[in-house]
Amino acid sequence: MRIKHVDTVTLKIPFSDLYEGPRAKRRGWTEFDTLLIRIETEDGLVGWGEAFAYGCASAVRAMIQDTVAPLVVDQDITDIAAFTLKLQQDLHIWGRYGITIFAISGIDIALWDLAAKQAGQSLATYLGGRVRDSVTTYASLVRYGGPEPIAIMTRRAVAEGYRDIKLHEIAYEPIAAARAAIGPDIRLTTDVNCAWSLAEAEAMLPKMKALDLYWVEEPTFPPEDYETHKALSRFGVALSAGENACTAMEFTRLSAALTFPQPSVIKIGGVSEFVKATRHAATLGKTVMPHSPYFGPGYWATLQLAAHLEPVGMFEYMYVKPEAYCGHNIPLPQQGQITIPDTPGIGFTPDDETLRRYRVA
C-alpha cells in the first residue's frame, strides 16, 4: 500500500469521574487529550491510529508532522513491523522512547488498520485469527483520594457487574475502604503510579497482601527498574508494570520481574511492538494485562489484540463518562464483559461531529 497523506487530529474531551459527593480537594484531571492519526493510501483507503497524548499532545503532534510523516508519505509499505522498526532506527538520535515512540505507535496502529481493511478482515483475524470473542473487563477508577468516595464508587462498579476493580490510590485508608466496601470476593488492585519510595513500598506491600490485592502496579520509581520489582516480589504480592516500558526490547527486559506485564499499544510502538512483547511474555508463562488507552483508536486496537493473543487477560476500562466518544458504536462493558467487534481493521470509525466539536486548533 502506497501512502498518500498523514494527518493528525488533536481532541480535548471533558469527562465526569461519576462522583458527586464532597471532595477533599478539587479534581485535577478533567479532560482526555487524544491525538488521532489519519493515514490515507493513494487508493483512498483510510486507516486510523492513536498516539499517547496525555499532557504532551502538541509535542507528539509536532513530532509526527515535522519528523515522522515525511518518512511515511510516498512509501509503499508491505511489511509494517519492518517499516516501523526502520522508523525507530532512523529516528533513534531523538531517543527511542517518549515522544518519538508515541508518534511511531500512532503511525503503526494506523498502518495495521489499513492493512486489515485492505484484506477485508478485522485486525485480529488478519494477524492470524481470533482466540476469543469477548474479554473480561475491570473498572479502572481515577484517584479520588479519600475513603468515602472510594467506598461509594467501588460499590457502584460492583453493582454494574464488575468483578475486578483497579484503584489509583496510594494511601492505605482508601484502599482498605475499598476492600471493606466490596468484600472479599471482588478482585482489587491499585496503581501507585510510582509514588512510593522503596521504604514506603516495603512498608505498604505487607498491608496490601493482608487486603488480598490481586496486584500492585508500578509501586516505585523508576517504573522500568527490574531489580527493585524483583526484590519487592518477596512480599508475596503480585506486581505489575509496563505501560511506561517503550519498545518490545525494554518491555521484555522488565517482564521477567513481574507477575502481570502491562503493555500500552499507544506507547510501546504500536501493534508491531505489542505483539512481540506479548508473545515473549507468553514464553515466560505470563498473563498480560494491557493498558487500554482511553477511548480512541488505541482502545479499539487493544480489543483486537485481546481477541488475537492468548496470553491477554483482562481489558482495562476507564470508569468515567466522557462527554462524547470520538468513534461510532464504541463497544462498552456489559456486566464486566466487552464483546469484541469483528469488523474490518481495528473497527474504529470517527464521529465527525465529535471531531469537529472537540478539535484543538
Rank of each mutant, 00 (worst) to 15 (best):
residue 32 F to Q: 06
residue 59 A to M: 01
residue 336 G to F: 04
residue 1 M to P: 09
residue 329 N to H: 14
residue 166 K to P: 10
residue 218 E to Q: 15
residue 260 F to I: 07
residue 239 L to E: 06
residue 265 V to L: 02
residue 292 S to I: 00
residue 235 F to G: 07
residue 68 V to S: 05
residue 242 G to T: 00
residue 115 A to F: 03
residue 145 G to F: 04
residue 178 A to L: 09
residue 238 A to K: 11
residue 321 K to M: 00
residue 116 A to M: 14
residue 38 R to N: 05
residue 353 E to H: 12
residue 186 I to D: 05
residue 336 G to V: 12
residue 218 E to D: 15
residue 268 I to A: 02
residue 87 L to S: 14
residue 152 I to D: 15
residue 276 K to M: 04
residue 38 R to K: 15
residue 225 D to N: 14
residue 356 R to M: 06
residue 308 H to C: 00
residue 119 A to S: 14
residue 36 L to F: 15
residue 91 L to R: 11
residue 338 I to R: 10
residue 310 E to G: 06
residue 132 R to H: 12
residue 228 T to W: 11
residue 331 P to N: 08
residue 141 L to C: 09
residue 159 A to S: 15
residue 49 G to Y: 07
residue 153 M to S: 07
residue 114 L to S: 05
residue 130 R to F: 14
residue 324 A to T: 10
residue 350 P to N: 08
residue 199 A to K: 13
residue 62 A to N: 13
residue 224 E to R: 03
residue 306 A to L: 02
residue 232 L to D: 04
residue 147 P to T: 09
residue 285 G to V: 04
residue 37 I to Y: 10
residue 343 T to G: 10
residue 33 D to P: 08
residue 11 L to F: 10
residue 2 R to F: 10
residue 295 F to S: 02
residue 208 M to W: 11
residue 228 T to V: 13
residue 94 W to C: 02
residue 29 W to G: 02
residue 33 D to H: 14
residue 149 P to M: 13
residue 315 F to P: 01
residue 34 T to F: 11
residue 338 I to Q: 09
residue 250 E to H: 12
residue 90 D to N: 14
residue 170 I to F: 13
residue 360 V to N: 02
residue 38 R to M: 11
residue 339 T to F: 08
residue 56 C to N: 11
residue 311 P to C: 07
residue 249 M to K: 11
residue 72 V to K: 03
residue 220 T to E: 04
residue 351 D to W: 03
residue 54 Y to I: 10
residue 339 T to A: 14
residue 102 F to L: 08
residue 336 G to M: 02
residue 202 E to G: 03
residue 245 A to P: 00
residue 240 S to Y: 06
residue 33 D to R: 04
residue 8 T to Y: 04
residue 160 E to S: 07
residue 284 L to D: 03
residue 14 P to L: 00
residue 354 T to H: 08
residue 288 V to H: 00
residue 253 R to N: 13
residue 355 L to C: 02
residue 83 F to K: 06
residue 125 T to W: 01
residue 197 S to D: 12
residue 197 S to E: 11
residue 99 I to V: 13
residue 87 L to R: 07
residue 255 S to V: 07
residue 96 R to A: 03
residue 26 R to H: 14
residue 28 G to V: 05
residue 288 V to E: 05
residue 48 W to R: 07
residue 45 L to N: 06
residue 224 E to C: 06
residue 76 D to T: 13
residue 320 V to S: 00
residue 247 T to F: 01
residue 302 T to L: 01
residue 68 V to H: 04
residue 258 L to T: 02
residue 28 G to C: 05
residue 203 A to M: 08
residue 302 T to Y: 01
